[in-house]
């Protein structure tokens, strides 16, 4: 931590205070950590995995009541059955992921061979297609079952997104995700950062805005509003649409790179999916 701080300080001095800095991922993360620490001095670092409930006391009470009878449980069970049921060709997820099902901590990662960010959802579908099965849809439906099961089995493992140095395209993907995060979009002209960094903890109409750090630790998420479990990219879609921006394709390059950038900022935190939200 201290080292990171020192690093970001040197960086700042090296380039002056100009805001058009190409900062290292480490410096990016240090900036987020400092920002949230100043905004929420009472929140312990490992509480960020609880999303908005790390900072919203009233919301937290409701949420804890909900968690006593987790609404995502049936989805975990359905996912377990999917995991254990062979495909038509006799193979199964187990054959694609011999170390599974507790594998969520390995995603997203840079896939050098394919030259792209590999996410868990994409890897699961690649497995299906390699075995002659139809790919699942990326926002709604049964992909959430298998994701719920894998998330549940991966609970407690630490987020550890790596930007490998041996392939400059990995850094490009990270930078692309970062650019996405800070770009204002839509008729209402918000960036992701406008709500989840600049205004984290503030109330937009009646909704408390949660910090971005820790946001990806608990996906997929059961949302009361959806009445079901949905993927991270479904959430991205919603957050784009609410500022009147056209959403991007789930598991397309834009959202995968965004996930890469966003997940990196949660490095070191524990996975605690699936989650339950309003």
């Amino acid at each position: 931590m201290k080292k990171l701080l020192a690093m970001s300080m040197t960086l700042m001095m090296a380039v002056g205070i100009s805001s058009n800095v190409v900062a290292s991922p480490e410096a990016d993360k240090a900036a987020w950590d400092n920002h949230y620490k100043q905004r929420f001095p009472g929140v312990p670092a490992d509480d960020y995995i609880n999303g908005v409930y790390a900072i919203d006391k009233v919301g937290r009470e409701n949420w804890e009541a909900i968690e006593e009878f987790p609404p995502y449980e049936p989805f975990i069970d359905a996912g377990e059955e999917m995991w254990n049921t062979p495909f038509a060709n006799g193979k199964g997820y187990k054959d694609c992921f011999p170390k599974g099902p507790a594998i969520a901590q390995n995603y997203p990662h840079w896939d050098k061979e394919k030259g792209m960010v590999m996410t868990l959802a994409l890897a699961l579908n690649n497995c299906r297609e390699a075995n002659g099965e139809k790919p699942l849809k990326y926002k709604k439906g049964s992909i959430n079952n298998i994701l719920s099961y894998v998330a549940y089995q991966s609970r407690g493992n630490k987020i550890n997104v790596v930007i490998p140095k041996d392939d400059p395209r990995a850094m490009e993907a990270y930078e692309d995700g970062k650019k996405f995060y800070y770009t204002r979009r839509g008729q209402l002209n918000f960036s992701c950062a406008s709500c989840h960094i600049q205004n984290a903890g503030n109330v937009l109409r009646t909704e408390v805005l949660g910090p971005a750090k820790g946001q990806i630790s608990h996906f997929p998420v059961y949302r009361s509003k959806w009445g079901t479990v949905g993927t991270l990219h479904r959430r991205f879609t919603g957050c784009n649409k609410q500022v009147r921006a056209a959403p991007f394709k789930a598991q397309g390059k834009e959202y995968r790179n965004l996930e890469y950038f966003l997940s990196y900022q949660s490095n070191g935190l524990e996975l605690n999916g699936p989650g339950a939200r309003k």
């Binding site: 503030n202 109330v203 937009l204 109409r205 009646t206």
Partner: peptide
């Protein structure tokens, strides 16, 4: 009006109910 100005999402103003605090 939420579909128009929706100023209350962020501002306390007049007698508008449940304003935001941005």
């Amino acid at each position: 009006d939420r579909k128009k100005g929706n100023c209350l999402a962020c501002h306390m103003m007049g007698d508008g109910a449940s304003p935001g605090n941005i």
